[in-house]
Design a binder for these strands. Structure first.
Length: 873
RNA sequence: GCCGGGGUGGUGAAAUUGGUAUACACGCAGGUUUUAGGAACCUGUGCAGCAAUGCGUGGAGGUUCAAGUCCUCUCCCCGGCACCA
């Protein structure tokens, strides 16, 4: 037998697996499927570092395991290849991102291949493939027709470095762009916008059923940010204006003594005009507003640390008391929360601080034992000075108060969401072209895409709008939005179905447009279009989609094999959905989804949104795309800290494989820590798994450890093997992959240990069983030993998982801990068939126990552990 | 401030869900072998103590025959959100 040298066999097996299509996707069978998916990577020029494959190894282990258990497994890989980094790199190098991306993908694929993943490469996809983005475009048109996607002027976050507008979700809390770290600015642009808030409730309630990490679920709930409260209406003295405030603590309303509004609040400009008209002094207010307007986003954030404001000189009438509430402009009132106006009292720390600074009187209606006002957020206490509600407990009276306010016409109940419309336009070249045409003339005539003649000629499946509407109505969801934006969309027409895909033109080189437009806007030949409505000259939309477009639905594409993929465009042209419903039904939803936590409110939220909509349009039969989600923890550089090119501390999987082989890389990445945990790479610790593999090699290939027949077999090792099978099965279910490797090591330690000076032997069959258990983790060495030593001609990865034999795994004798009053005093070896009373009697005879039993009320306690007969139920 | 996740040897971490705390691995120490090694193998390794034994899972209480695990309070670390009314 040759010495252990992974290089000798790893590349050989890669070729054989590829040639034999060892990992091709089988026909799905209903209850027996597992769709195991990685968040597909964004191919970059830097290639992979050892952090990237951590999640991929976990899904690969699970996929291999479930295949051996007889499941039909779908385990594909693809490329999220549109997007900013590749485009920025391309501009820098004066190249087209298409060419760069091709190279990046090739390098990623080479690296992934060398790790021995069992992807079905026949199902590979790239979002940049026109055949793929044709369907992204079809979906765009669908959402447009459903009234969920429309174009309007909006203030957007704009990245001056990437020269594009962004979605709110892409801006981090420090005001920087999540991709490039540049501080964003605000800009008003004409943008395609998704009405995702219409799905706030649907997205929120769906979270409960997900088997996802709590943190991610909490982030989504938080991002959707549902708040139920009360909007109170006020007349403003001397102004023809109704000022609405929002509160989630209506029970404290009788304490309110002033109102603050955001500087952008419409009432402020009204007041300024009114002041000008009646000649009152407005300089202080005007000065304040002018100063605020010059502040950037980050300056505003910093500014709010100190509460500032100015009195407007106007008063609102409190509908509750008829009293006058002075209206102030204040920096802590945010226009994008609630109504942008707040009633203030002593029950809020901010309000108190502001009132103290400017000498505004405050009141309180609930006080603690020393007379200090209780914070409204505590929602407790007994009301004072609250008209007919005085003397009542806050917690019990709130609903009654709300109902009374509403019945008096003072207020209305209102639900507020943090979730904002999703801005879907990017002023970039490297994205899916938006399949829309704008015609000036038709716009003037008020023609829309929903006009019957236009609709019919587009070739789009018309039934979806009705189906969609019907399902929303059945759920009691508002359908107003479906038609609401149509009048704003006159002159905008989707491409006819036979024109899909709208291909991105190949540009030799180009630079970013600095005026808030896409580079495509400068390509006059390309953007010229014919109006699908009047046949006259028109223009294509020149903005492109964000790279979320491709990732929102790629898991649907993977469910399609090459022939059903070929049917997608023909389906669309027949006015049908592109998808093969049978294939979707049999594979989806994704059972196990693995990726980084940074997508919590980006990809994961957007995908859920699209699928909820597709479900309402009855294009898919499931509502939640990802049943179970696991986040892999980051792999830090040795000693801690992020790996980065600039620090020169990046560990490349290529070099690890060159030194130790792919099996050791895989094993170490799974062994180093629970896989959701952040962990630093250790160049020393990887030696441990390398030694283990070497031991596996030596034992399995040595005839000393091989039994001729079952008579020759070491029973203890065989029993350990049965326990191992059981342990692995339960840990796989819990996705605790690190402890499976520990268990394999423990088994090896037993097998390798001498028994009365002789090596322990296992039969060929049981050596096979051990190799099968290890195969999902270390596919190369197990395949080599399976083939060379055990003489198999088929792949171990297509073999059946060993059968767990419980009767064999049960010990005849165990070591039982004996405690006296809860403290461990001794251990005794007992037969598992013994009765409890006999064991106690046996323990009482032990000298080491007896000495602890001298005294009052002391007794023996046996640890109820699995194994002994009397412990089992 | 709010939400989520954590605190166990020198290090990465286990612990059958209330039953022998520190499995497995790294590192370290001593030894064997080798011309030599950063190789291989063996032994040891929570702390204190010669020992019996005592102490020990961030801290303080509690429940229990028995607590890393359950309850109450508290401190610290990581991630997310945020003057959210």
């Amino acid at each position: 037998m040759p010495i252990f040298d992974p290089k000798q066999y790893e590349s050989k097996w890669l070729d054989i697996w590829e040639k034999n299509k060892t990992y091709s996707t089988p026909q799905p069978r209903d209850s027996q499927k597992q769709y195991i998916l990685d968040m597909f990577p964004y191919p970059s020029g830097a290639g992979l570092h050892v952090g990237h494959p951590r999640g991929y190894i976990a899904t690969d282990v699970l996929s291999r395991y479930y295949r051996m258990r007889g499941y039909a497994v779908l385990h594909p890989m693809g490329w999220d290849a549109f997007g900013l980094p590749a485009e920025n790199a391309a501009i820098k190098e004066g190249k087209n991102p298409q060419d760069l991306t091709k190279n990046y993908i090739a390098n990623f694929k080479r690296q992934l291949r060398s790790i021995g993943f069992s992807y079905d490469w026949d199902r590979e996809l790239a979002t940049t493939d026109p055949a793929y983005y044709a369907i992204s475009q079809w979906l765009f048109i669908l959402f447009f027709y459903l009234g969920l996607l429309y174009k309007k002027n909006v203030p957007v976050y704009y990245c001056g470095y990437c020269k594009t507008g962004l979605a709110q979700e892409e801006v981090l809390s420090d005001g920087t762009h999540e991709r490039c770290g540049n501080v964003v600015e605000q800009k008003e642009l004409f943008q395609w916008v998704f009405k995702i808030p219409e799905y706030a409730e649907s997205l929120l309630s769906g979270i409960d059923e997900l088997n996802w990490p709590e943190g991610i679920k909490a982030m989504q709930r938080n991002w959707i940010g549902k708040k139920e409260g009360l909007v109170i209406h006020h007349e403003v003295e001397g102004l023809d204006y109704h000022l609405d405030t929002f509160t989630v603590y209506p029970a404290f309303s009788y304490a309110d003594s002033y109102i603050v509004v955001a500087s952008e609040h419409p009432v402020v400009s009204l007041i300024l005009t009114a002041k000008q008209a009646d000649g009152t002094d407005s300089t202080a207010l005007r000065h304040y507003i002018d100063t605020v307007e010059t502040l950037t986003r980050e300056q505003k954030i910093a500014d709010v640390k100190e509460k500032k404001g100015v009195f407007t000189g106007y008063y609102a009438i409190d509908p509750l008391t008829g009293g006058r509430l002075p209206i102030w402009v204040a920096n802590f009132a945010m226009m994008d929360f609630g109504t942008g106006a707040i009633r203030c009292s002593a029950h809020d720390a901010r309000d108190r601080e502001f009132a103290k600074k400017y000498g505004i009187p405050v009141k309180s209606v609930v006080n603690d034992s020393v007379g200090a006002p209780i914070e409204a957020s505590a929602k407790k206490g007994v009301l004072e000075n609250s008209a007919s509600f005085t003397g009542r407990d806050v917690s019990e009276v709130e609903q009654e108060m709300v109902e009374w306010f509403v019945s008096q016409g003072f207020a209305k109940q209102s639900t507020n969401y943090h979730l904002r419309e999703w801005i879907f336009s990017r002023q970039r070249y490297w994205g899916e072209p938006i399949p829309m045409i704008f015609c000036d003339r038709c716009a003037d005539l008020g023609k829309t895409a929903w006009d019957e003649d236009v609709l019919a000629s587009t070739g789009f499946g018309l039934g979806y709008i009705d189906t969609f509407k019907r399902n929303l109505e059945q759920r009691g969801q508002s359908t107003r939005f479906i038609t609401e934006s149509r009048s704003m969309m006159s002159g905008w027409f989707p491409l006819t179905m036979d024109r899909l895909p709208l291909e991105l033109p190949y540009l030799e080189s180009y630079s970013a447009n600095t005026e808030g437009k896409s580079p495509l806007a400068d390509v006059f030949v390309w953007k010229k279009a014919t109006c699908p409505c009047c046949g006259g000259p028109a223009e294509y939309e020149t903005d492109t989609m964000p790279n979320w477009a491709g990732s929102c639905w790629y898991f649907l594409y993977f469910a399609h094999d090459s022939s059903s993929r070929g049917q997608m465009l023909p389906n669309v042209m027949r006015g049908e959905s592109p998808f093969d419903k049978d294939l979707l039904d049999s594979w989806l939803p994704v059972d196990t989804y693995v990726g980084g936590a940074e997508h919590a409110v980006l990809h994961l939220l957007y995908s859920r949104f699209w699928i909820h909509v597709l479900n309402d349009a009855e294009i898919v039969n499931f509502r939640e795309p990802f049943t179970s989600l696991y986040n892999q923890g980051m792999v830090l550089a040795p000693g801690g800290g992020k790996m980065s090119k600039s620090k020169g501390n990046v560990i490349n999987p290529d070099s690890v494989i060159a030194e130790y082989g792919a099996d050791a890389l895989r094993l170490y990445e799974m062994f180093m820590a629970p896989f959701s945990q952040e962990v630093a790479w250790s160049t020393e610790s990887i030696q441990g798994v390398y030694r283990f593999l070497k031991k596996v090699w030596q034992l399995c290939s040595s005839t000393d450890h091989l039994a001729d027949g079952s008579k020759d077999e070491d029973q203890e090792t065989f029993r350990e093997l049965q326990k191992l099978v059981h342990k692995v099965e339960s840990d796989m279910t819990d996705v605790k992959l690190n402890t499976i490797i520990s268990a394999c090591m423990e088994f090896m330690n037993v097998w390798a240990s001498a028994s009365s000076g002789l090596p322990r032997r296992l039969t060929k069959e049981h050596v096979s069983d051990f190799l099968k258990i290890l195969a999902p983790f270390a596919p190369f060495i197990t395949e080599e030993l399976w083939s060379i030593v055990l003489g198999n001609t088929t792949s171990i990865h297509q073999s059946q998982w060993p059968v767990y034999r419980r009767s064999i795994s049960e010990d005849k004798e165990i070591v039982l801990a004996v405690q006296v009053n809860g403290k461990l005093r001794s251990t005794i070896r007992i037969s598992t068939s013994m009765e409890e009373s006999d064991v106690v009697a046996l323990a009482e005879q032990e000298k080491s126990i007896q000495k602890w039993l001298q005294g009052e009320g002391l007794s023996i306690d046996l640890c109820k552990r699995e194994g002994a007969k009397f412990c089992n139920p």
